[in-house]
């Protein structure tokens, strides 16, 4: 578990998304944020009904996941969110910290760019903003950077076995998403809701 950004190994979002989904054995819900977070989730297994693919509403992956977590306290829920997206909705970290959902984990994919709009740098990258430190200062005590794949595995393991809310920060490379989702919101909602109706 790493507290600062000094010594972080740059990892790959597609590979880590696959790694995460591969560890999910109890119908955990995964909410993919807009753009590449979504597309790599889609590429990791588009038939997985517990995945929800957000098609707009940039910044709302964590609030949507939080809502699922409230409705189903026995199901663990993951939000996959980019640094630029989270920057749009930092207030939600305080909202979540105030309610302390035990079953929620937010994974921040931090590449420092708005990749999908042409890879422009984020203000937070220019400023050296530490997204995990923001989460911790917002009241989310279990927030850490994953320095490498082994730490990522350990933090996901902690998220799957201990009470949250948890935040896992990951510095990622600039490889674009591996695939693109269909654009079929009603099917996505139906599939996800059906999966959520299955007991954990």
């Amino acid at each position: 578990m790493t507290d600062n950004t000094d010594n972080l190994h740059v990892m790959n979002r597609a590979a880590l998304t696959k790694r995460l989904v591969g560890k999910l054995t109890k119908r955990e819900a995964v909410i993919g944020g807009i753009g590449n977070s979504n597309w790599d989730l889609w590429a990791s297994g588009k038939d997985r009904g517990e995945n929800f693919y957000m098609l707009g509403s940039m910044g709302l992956a964590a609030p949507i996941a939080f809502g699922v977590a409230i409705a189903q306290p026995n199901r663990r829920v993951f939000a996959l969110e980019g640094d630029g997206s989270l920057l749009m909705q930092l207030g939600c970290l305080s909202t979540i910290a105030a309610q302390k959902p035990k079953n929620l984990t937010i994974i921040i994919w931090d590449n420092g760019i708005y990749q999908i709009t042409g890879s422009q740098g984020t203000p937070s990258a220019s400023a050296g903003t530490d997204m995990v430190a923001i989460a911790r200062a917002s009241g989310l005590a279990s927030a850490a950077w994953a320095a490498d794949e082994a730490e990522f595995d350990a933090l996901v393991g902690k998220a799957l076995t201990t009470d949250g809310p948890h935040v896992i920060g990951v510095k990622i490379d600039r490889e674009p998403g591996r695939d693109q989702t269909d654009r079929d919101p009603i099917r996505f909602r139906e599939t996800f809701s059906r999966a959520m109706a299955q007991a954990v």
Binding site: L60, P63, I64, F66, G67, I70, A71, Q72, T95, S193
Partner: peptide, 11 residues
């Protein structure tokens, strides 16, 4: 966002 997520999960 929160209400949307909860609604899809049955609340």
């Amino acid at each position: 966002g929160i209400v949307t997520g909860a609604s899809m999960a049955g609340m």
